[in-house]
């Protein structure tokens, strides 16, 4: 689900322009910060540019070349940090680690010999503000926006597929082939083969009654009790 870094060639407005914000889908700009250089991977810094942060993504747009810019969703930013250690990087910066699209390494290697920059393989991005005193403010905004973007997997994939008998494994294997979490790649071991259908049925019944709502209250109570 991580999309990694993208090239941005389209802009809104005249002159240098600004990023195209998807306001229809609730995207809003949080910060515009001029005078920022960008360092992708181990490449040399690119500047001058302007950093734009929305509640969904980060842009860096070149101030001189309207066709040059990069963007990355907060969902793809797996880590961000304030880096002030000159041994790590000469200029104080926001360091980000970028989760790249899940691709088979071998597949990528076969055509990666070209010199062109393959943005989808960039795993590190540094943003270097001209004024280092702004780093803590930038870090705080990054944190705020990252928290606004929890992984969809957290909410939608919260429930496990419980496997009770071996003959379910084959079906699952086919279904999961294209999913991001291909768990049952080699269902060679018929483990869990107890074939206990009654057990499965009782799970079904448990899930559709309303006991869960009672849990929620209980948990709140627990939380309160646990912190007083």
């Amino acid at each position: 689900m991580a999309t990694g870094l993208r090239l941005v060639t389209e802009r809104a407005g005249n002159g240098v322009g600004k990023p195209v914000i998807d306001t229809d889908n609730g995207e809003e700009l949080m910060l515009v910060h001029p005078g920022v250089s960008i360092v992708l991977g181990n490449r040399p810094p690119e500047f001058p540019g302007t950093l734009y942060i929305s509640n969904k993504q980060i842009w860096w747009l070149s101030d001189t070349d309207r066709a040059k810019g990069y963007a990355v969703d907060f969902l793809s930013v797996s880590l961000h940090a304030v880096s002030r250690d000159p041994e790590a990087y000469p200029s104080p910066c926001i360091f980000t680690q970028i989760e790249t699209p899940a691709v088979d390494d071998e597949l990528v290697d076969s055509d990666s010999e070209s010199e062109t920059l393959n943005l989808s393989k960039i795993t590190q991005m540094r943003l270097v503000p001209s004024d280092p005193s702004q780093l803590n403010m930038l870090f705080a905004i990054f944190c705020q926006c990252a928290e606004l973007n929890p992984d969809p997997t957290e909410e939608e994939e919260s429930v496990h597929n419980w496997i009770f008998s071996a003959d379910q494994l084959e079906d699952e294997d086919e279904e999961d082939e294209d999913s991001e979490w291909p768990v049952f790649q080699n269902p060679t071991h018929p483990i869990g083969a107890n074939g206990n259908h009654d057990l499965a049925h009782s799970v079904f019944q448990l899930q559709i009654n309303d006991q869960r709502f009672e849990d929620a209250e209980e948990m709140e109570q627990y939380d309160k009790n646990g912190h007083q």
């Binding site: 496990h160 057990l199 009782s202 799970v203 448990l206």
Partner: peptide, 8 residues
């Protein structure tokens, strides 16, 4: 009650 297995 505690040892009953109702769900995985």
């Amino acid at each position: 009650e505690e040892s009953a297995v109702k769900e995985p």
